[in-house]
């Protein structure tokens, strides 16, 4: 499926989605509460069939967090980037997608560890790399540590 067809199909699933076509893959921006139903459809739909989540990460834009999901279909061979905006920076929360793609469990643990984004309905949300009592979330832009060296 090419970018135009993908766009058409995703608009059917989520009418409020906006698009960005400047990058290599078609990027769609959806609201955080819409995320789980849209993702379920993207994976289940026979014409889309996004069965492979190859990258899951988060970006701290200071006034909001942006979750980024890179999806690929292994049999139809098309890619889509889904972005979801989290506006609450003090207590960021979003639905977990680990029921759809099992790989999300570890990736979400990592995002929780580094950004402090809480994933709802995650089976075992824990700090993956840092100790459980670590203060702060290192990949946030406002993170400081007494041992940090400024380059």
């Amino acid at each position: 499926m090419n970018a135009e067809e993908l766009k058409h199909k995703v608009t059917e699933l989520c009418p409020r989605a906006t698009y960005d076509e400047t990058g290599e893959f078609l990027t769609t921006l959806i609201a955080a509460p819409d995320l789980l139903p849209v993702m379920q459809q993207l994976a289940k739909d026979n014409e889309l069939h996004f069965d492979f989540l190859f990258c899951l990460t988060c970006i701290d834009w200071k006034d909001h967090f942006m979750m980024v999901y890179h999806l690929r279909s292994t049999d139809l061979n098309h890619c889509l980037v889904v972005k979801a905006k989290i506006t609450d920076t003090t207590n960021p929360e979003i639905e977990s997608v680990n029921d759809i793609w099992r790989t999300a469990e570890f990736h979400e643990d990592e995002v929780y560890d580094m950004f402090g984004v809480k994933f709802l309905n995650h089976p075992n949300l824990r700090r993956l790399f840092l100790e459980a009592d670590w203060n702060g979330f290192p990949l946030r832009k406002n993170y400081t540590d007494e041992n940090m060296i400024k380059l």
């Binding site: 190859f54 990258c55 990460t57 970006i59 701290d60 980024v68 890179h70 099992r102 790989t103 469990e105 570890f106 990736h107 990592e110 990949l139």
Partner: peptide, 24 residues
């Protein structure tokens, strides 16, 4: 995955490493 804000350093840099997913 590089996110650029136009500066001389990456704004955010993510490495999707094969071993991380294979370990899971």
């Amino acid at each position: 995955y590089i996110v650029s804000d136009g500066a001389a350093t990456p704004y955010r840099c993510k490495f999707r490493s094969p071993n991380f997913s294979n370990l899971s």
